[in-house]
Nucleic acid binder design. Structure first.
Length: 300
DNA sequence: TCTATAATAT
DNA sequence: GATATTATAG
């Protein structure tokens, strides 16, 4: 109760990049195309400290090209072009709206009021890691378990997901395909499957209510409006182009979390050294505006 | 792949 | 302790 924080700062809900997407679809260089896509996600000092080589500026044109690249990879029957296919230099860089998403690196809103963000520091890896769920686990075997940290579905990431599902059509949207089209490094099929399951439940529930807005418990999902194509049949099969298609493979990018200057981050890099660990839950940003996971226990 | 449920986080 | 979120078993 000490912190009934209800963060509504991040608004990924409206003003989407839908228009943005169509721009790079059309291939027409726009102002955006020529703008650097991302601000430095890592402060120069930090980057230096951790020997993170700065990522060269990308423009929408770069993204576009990379996207096509990826597309051709996708079309190859089974080249396994995924783990390797992405290696065209686009390992990780901010998404196109990074400027908007991750403004205020110093945001760090003091939710607690007493300024103790430290209150949430816990174990960082220690084998068991954030990993967790599921049935029988050995609980430790701390030697090499290096279990992948629990994925946090950020609104940005979720939007990717929703877009992909929408463009595939619910019928064709299966974990594997979604995962591929989302084109997010480190994202596993299981991650997607789990999220898809929940998303389907959400859609179903929404259909039932059919009028009401999303329940307050549907935080993430509510933040990303359900596309028309999903509202009803939306069986836009592969051959039937009876619906507007947005070119699918997303520009390869991650949806990075705002950088944090907390020591945990260091460990995250070292322990896992996985490009995706940026959004693996090391419980760092629960203190800032992206602590979207706060539930509002209103509707009891 | 999908669903149920365990584990974990807030 | 309740509820939400994610992972994993079946």
């Amino acid at each position: 109760m000490g912190e009934e924080v209800r963060i509504t700062d991040y608004d990924v809900s409206n003003d989407d990049d839908d228009d943005r997407v169509s721009e790079w679809e059309l291939g027409l260089p726009t102002v955006h195309d020529l703008m650097p896509l991302s601000q430095s996600l890592v402060p120069a000092e930090l980057a230096t400290a951790f020997s993170i080589s700065p990522v060269p500026h990308r423009t929408m044109i770069d993204v576009n090209r990379a996207s096509q690249n990826t597309l051709s990879n996708l079309k190859k029957p089974f080249n396994n072009g995924f783990s390797n296919g992405l290696s065209n230099g686009f390992k990780s860089f901010g998404e196109e709206r990074a400027d908007e998403m991750f403004i205020e690196g110093e945001e760090t809103v003091d939710l607690t009021g007493d300024g103790s963000d430290m209150r949430k520091l816990r174990r960082v890896d220690s084998g068991g890691g954030g990993g967790g769920g599921g049935g029988g686990e050995e609980a430790d075997s701390s030697t090499r378990t290096s279990k992948r940290p629990r994925l946090v579905w950020t609104p940005q990431l979720h939007k990717r997901f929703v877009d992909v599902v929408a463009h595939l059509g619910v019928k064709n949207a299966v974990p594997k395909t979604i995962m591929q089209l989302m084109n997010v490094e480190g994202l596993t099929r299981e991650n997607v499957a789990s999220h898809l399951q929940k998303y389907r439940l959400y859609l179903k529930r929404m259909q039932g209510l059919s009028n009401e807005g999303p329940s307050s418990s549907d935080h993430l999902f509510a933040s990303t409006p359900v596309p028309q194509s999903l509202q009803e049949s939306s069986g836009n099969g592969n051959g039937n182009g009876n619906s507007v298609q947005i070119p699918m493979p997303y520009p390869p990018h991650m949806v990075p979390m705002p950088y944090t200057q907390q020591p945990q981050m260091v460990q995250a890099f070292e322990s896992h050294s996985h490009p995706f660990n940026m959004m693996m839950h090391q419980r760092d940003w629960s203190g800032n505006k992206y602590a979207y996971q706060h539930r509002m226990t209103n509707d009891k």
